[in-house]
């Protein structure tokens, strides 16, 4: 199988003040695949995923060493335009966080941010993004409704549509279904499996079944290290490390 490295992380260390949360992590994320991050609570999954679109820049006292490359270019280099990086690497959060605006304005916010003003062009993007996020049919008749007035599962798909509307190359998702009911969860899983045809996806999850069902590769985290990363099938059936095996079979974490 020929695969292209989309994101390459090398010897990444990260500190929150004096606390070292990542101890020199290496990771490869391949184009148009779903990479899952698994591991016990507090092991650094969210921390690592946030370094991939530099959301950690917002955290006071957060400092990194090492490199993160997107298409072979260091995203922490001075030359990188932060807003453009975040346009290319989108993010969906654990708690659905739509703006208290209409559904339409939620989706159109990103494209407007990046300079699209034309109404018919925006209409098209809104429709396309909502369709991609498999929520068009549910909301197409009330796009002017406040996005907070719909259910949590729908809100999360609105957030996914909103992220897709800026046409990112990578989509980062930090436990996107942990706040949702099983039906919404399975809808989002189907959706994510569909999206990988066009996007590179990184997803943190606490749900082993979810990781094994939809991801292509899995990285197992423990105490700020990546213990093992491999094909999901391999990680779940025949892991190389005993810690991975213990975690998968539920012996700790």
């Amino acid at each position: 199988m020929s695969r292209t490295n989309k994101i390459t992380v090398r010897d990444l260390k990260l500190w929150y003040g004096d606390f070292e949360a990542l101890h020199g992590v290496d990771l490869d994320i391949y184009e148009k695949e779903i990479t899952a991050f698994i591991g016990p609570s507090g092991c650094g999954k969210s921390t690592l995923i946030k370094t991939l679109n530099r959301m950690n820049d917002l955290v006071e006292n957060c400092r990194i060493e090492g490199t993160v490359e997107l298409d072979g270019k260091d995203i922490y280099s001075r030359k990188v335009e932060l807003n453009n990086l975040r346009k290319r690497v989108g993010m969906v959060f654990q708690q659905p966080n739509p703006f208290p605006k209409s559904i339409y304005d939620n989706i159109a916010f990103g494209p407007r941010t990046h300079g699209i003003k034309n109404k018919s062009e925006l209409d098209e993007i809104v429709e396309k993004s909502l369709k991609q996020a498999a929520i068009w049919d549910e909301v197409k008749d009330h796009l002017d409704r406040n996005a907070l007035s719909i259910s949590g599962g729908q809100q999360q798909r609105i957030c996914i549509a909103r992220a897709l509307a800026v046409e990112p190359e990578v989509l980062l998702m930090d436990e996107p279904t942990s706040a949702l009911d099983p039906i919404s969860t399975s809808k989002i899983e189907d959706l994510v499996s569909e999206l990988k045809n066009e996007y590179t996806i990184v997803m943190v999850t606490h749900n082993m079944q979810q990781a094994s069902r939809i991801s292509d590769r899995t990285a197992f985290f423990l105490n700020g290290n990546i213990i093992e990363q491999d094909e999901t099938r391999k990680i779940f059936t025949n892991p190389s490390e005993t810690e991975t095996d213990n975690y998968i079979s539920g012996r700790f974490g």
């Binding site: 989108g90 966080n97 703006f99």
Partner: peptide, 25 residues
């Protein structure tokens, strides 16, 4: 924080986030 994060994550800068997202609320 959540709506601010959402805005930053879409590539909006500080001013745009403040005026278009935070201020209306």
């Amino acid at each position: 924080m959540p709506i601010r994060q959402a805005s930053y994550a879409l590539g909006a800068g500080k001013l745009r986030t403040l005026f278009k997202v935070v201020l209306p609320v």
